[in-house]
Write a protein that binds this DNA or RNA. Structure first.
Lengths: 245, 245
DNA sequence: AAGTGGTCTAGACCACCTT
DNA sequence: AGGTGGTCTAGACCACTTC
């Protein structure tokens, strides 16, 4: 990691500065709640204008690394708030964070005409097809959840079972194959009771409580790309969220 | 709502402009995905510099009202993404949004020494007191949740039952009496089963499924201010979240 | 080529906090 | 008073999209 700004680099200066400051923070050189150099000091240190410096700081504030206090300075946020929200939305990453080994059994990858409710949520014209993916999600080898995804792509013929088995995460496929960046999601959570099929697949008794998550995912242009429904075993799963602003 | 910028107003120009643009959007004058005037047009329309205009637009992007596309323009986000995240954290506002009349029965407002787990979460020294508030939350007059809050304040002798009954919302009290602005929260959700007391208070059968929410709230300086635990009736409540970035 | 947003400069003055 | 962030100006050139 460089510690100077290269004016000829394709990376914008404010972005280069943000990376430099971020490195200081994550490396622990600047402890939580300590002040970083004042904006006018950073101006002389890095020979860039204050506007550009403020842009870099704004980035790190948005990312949860810094906060400002008028008249006092700019300070490092406590470590525990430096988590990224989107880490949540990937089941695999979520499991790894909890120290649980993620796994999956892929039950179905098919091109279908979706139910009208799904069609409406994904803002699709009638008869448009989507990819349906059904999976059993495993934690340390045991079933934790049942997941059904509906994905809207221009050419739906392009996510295969092999893709999923290779990369594991749907979000990685969307980013790497289609340059679709998951940017926002709307989600509801509620309690339901397991029916016969669900109970069988999850290895629990019918009538056992489940946590039902339904999520609509949007890309960087706020277009809906995926509707996903996950049924979690109530006794095995706790849901974590971070709310901002 | 004014439609011009007053340079002598105490409200900053970029903030005034953001309010003007936001009004156009929420009033429906600018439909979703339509382009707003280009930045250089806004410069001449409102006689303010482009930097200031970009600050206003940045605000509205952060709030979910607009998005940019390089080389194309700045566009209005689809309406459904224009919700504020923090609206969630207030039970009363949440209920109003769903068309349900909120209510509460205040069972306890007391100054206590908290259990060590709560003390640790709120980053308090031993023997420090907090305010505990127990409430039954009502929707259209019927119980839907049991809520217990622990609030850490410098002088804990300052939230009364009268405050709560008058303003209804704890967040309003924090803002108006203490200038504490709820800025971030960490939350977990899980399924549990009602015990005898809980069942009685909620008017359900023991063993019925409940949604347990536990939330740690941080102020604008990322200091913990409240730990709150809410048990929702599983059959009456659906939880809504918006995830960003 | 023309229009759009993306980045950047070198200033200025104001508002708030600390000493 | 001096230092900090907050707001603002009037430009400049670059990168991307559309025609």
């Amino acid at each position: 990691m460089s510690t100077t700004i290269d004016p000829y680099n394709v990376i914008p200066k404010y972005h280069q500065l943000a990376l430099i400051l971020k490195a200081q923070i994550v490396d622990g050189n600047w402890p939580p709640r300590s002040a970083i150099p004042a904006e006018r000091q950073l101006e002389t240190i890095y020979s860039i204008s204050r506007t550009t410096i403020r842009e870099a700081i704004n980035l790190l504030i948005q990312q949860g690394y810094l906060y400002r206090e008028h008249g006092r300075g700019t300070f490092v946020s406590p470590q525990k708030l430096q988590k990224k929200i989107m880490e949540l939305t990937s089941f695999s990453e979520d499991m790894v964070k909890r120290g649980i080994r993620p796994g999956q059994i892929i039950r179905k990858v098919e091109i279908i005409t979706p139910p009208t409710r799904i069609q409406r949520l994904l803002e699709l014209p009638p008869n448009n097809t989507v990819i349906e993916i059904d999976r059993i999600r495993l934690g340390d080898g045991k079933p934790i959840g049942l997941q059904t995804s509906y994905i809207a792509l221009q050419n739906p013929n392009t996510i295969t079972k092999a893709d999923l088995e290779e990369l594991g995460s749907l979000y990685k496929i969307l980013e790497q194959k289609f340059h679709i960046i998951p940017s926002e999601a709307e989600e509801t959570l509620e309690v339901t009771l397991a029916d016969l099929d669900e109970a069988k697949l999850l290895g629990i008794l019918p009538g056992a409580p489940l946590l039902l998550s339904q999520r609509l995912l949007f890309d960087q242009n706020r277009k809906p790309v995926e509707f996903v429904r996950i049924l979690y075993r109530g006794d095995k799963y706790q849901y974590y969220i971070r709310l901002v602003r």
